[in-house]
Design a protein around this nucleic acid. Structure first.
Lengths: 179, 179
DNA sequence: CTCCTATATGTCATTAATGACATGTTTTAA
DNA sequence: TTAAAACATGTCATTAATGACATATAGGAG
């Protein structure tokens, strides 16, 4: 296996919240959950077909305007079982943390290397932008702090903010070490 | 492309530090750089062959004991060019952050869900263990703080520690929100 | 009325990565 | 001395994921 096919569970989880089309699912990965998983429509549409064949989903056709039919998928009882089994299973601490920039730093051997400072500064711009954006999202979507319903949404957004916070702090401290 | 084949650059980077065998490269992913990239020997050996065919590496045979011959790979000037080009290229803020636990939380909709607390506590054990281990590594490998040579090594270890620190803080704050 | 953007759904070739299979040597500890 | 663990190198089938190709409708702006 190349991965453990978590995509199926994410789709089930999203459809459990509310029935959606493939297009809407694709867009979901552009928002908050995109911070922790990504998927393109070319992967989502085939996966929807597989899940439906397996009996985890059903779809109904909706017609917008004159002709355009879209498929709105809903989770079945079987699908809900699959989702709950996944949620109940123990989760290992994520080991997938792939970070290209960290690797590059690893290969800059010396503190006096002239490439070090500009690299760190460029990365600082990237992550500061991302951090600001995420903080704005959090403040906009949850102006009153943690909600009772939708707590998971709040928590992962907060996680993303804290993650970027850590990254910015780390870059700042790294810059101090570089001559 | 499924990915951007960063493995080739990581191999070049490691071999630039010192010539190594495929076995030694494999072990390198079990230590610190494993926090930011992973690879199995089944991927490394073919990649070494490809890089050698492309002229980025050469190898010499060493005989240990009676029979066993191992191949020690070294980077060529061409390989060094490839490595330096990669290091000089701009790096986007990592978007690969795949976190299964964060996704599970996202699908627990309500703060009163009975699954929430045990999930968070189990994950807390995982990440506290990992954090302690990494902190011990940092203290052992760099008892005198940041070095001048091997700064990159120090920085990524520190990055891993801070990352786990953030994770533990986040889990603790999440537990406060859960009834 | 026309163009652009967003909506909407699919396929396909290619590649990165995994886990299993396969084989043999060397060292170390019981 | 013998068995286990570590060293050492490879192949292969399968799968997850990407990016490109393909096609068509709907709605809004100028």
């Amino acid at each position: 296996m190349a991965q453990r096919n978590l995509l199926q569970f994410i789709i089930l989880g999203l459809l459990h919240q509310t029935p959606m089309t493939g297009y809407e699912l694709t867009k979901a990965f552009d928002s908050d959950i995109g911070e922790f998983w990504s998927a393109q429509h070319s992967q989502i549409y085939p996966q929807l077909q597989k899940l439906e064949t397996a009996g985890a989903l059903t779809h109904t056709e909706e017609v917008t305007g004159e002709k355009l039919a879209r498929k709105r998928y809903a989770i079945t009882d079987d699908g809900l079982d699959t989702l709950n089994t996944w949620l109940a299973a123990p989760t290992a601490a994520s080991t997938n943390g792939k970070d290209e920039f960290a690797l590059k730093l690893y290969f800059i051997p010396d503190a006096s290397d002239s490439r070090l400072k500009p690299m760190l500064e460029a990365q600082q711009v990237e992550h500061t932008t991302k951090r600001t954006h995420l903080e704005h999202q959090l403040a906009t979507k949850f102006p009153d702090g943690a909600p009772t319903t939708g707590l998971g949404h709040y928590l992962i957004l907060q996680h993303a903010v804290l993650r970027e916070h850590e990254y910015c702090d780390w870059l700042a401290s790294a810059l101090k070490h570089c001559h």
